[in-house]
Amino acid sequence: MAAPGSHRVPPWRRIDGTTVFFVLLALATGGATWWLHGPGAFADTLLRALGLLAWIAPVLLGALLVGAYVQRLLPRATMERWLGGRSGLRGLTVATVAGAVTPGGPFAAFPLVVALYRAGASVEVCIAYVTAWSVLGINRALIWELPFLGPDFVLLRLLVSLPLPFLAGGLSRLLRRPPT
């Protein structure tokens, strides 16, 4: 996300809780590996982790650039125009496609949902969008899932996930409270 007010931070200030957590977890699990399986297993695992890191670095870099391009090419206003006021199967389909191509974390997706909701998009469409962004989000699949779990897994998971936004959207329609 382009943080408009971002200013230069010295590198040590970027060491936040998450980073500390992972460093401690890596030390603990590394220590346990040494202790339980011996230094040979420790060295093997360390080499494997470094190999994986070298392998995923280019994927990560490329996927971040793709996400940044998509964000510039599809500004929020365009997405809102696509989704606003649509409903039914057509609305769910558009919401599914829009959710799948929305890059970035919840701080990118939820403001769009809020805007849509306020602009009068139906709850089904909003829920289908959130579901599609969660399970079909191409950006996250590329950055995280592909390097860790491999293309076969990602492809299979995306394929079986295609009907899910329709399922959640359709079910949410049934959950509507009867008018009082």
Binding site: T19, F22, L25, G30, L52, L53
Partner: peptide, 12 residues
């Protein structure tokens, strides 16, 4: 900063 230790922890 986060990814290398996260990956190490995951593989261990």
């Amino acid at each position: 900063l986060r990814l290398p230790p996260a990956l190490l922890a995951g593989v261990f």
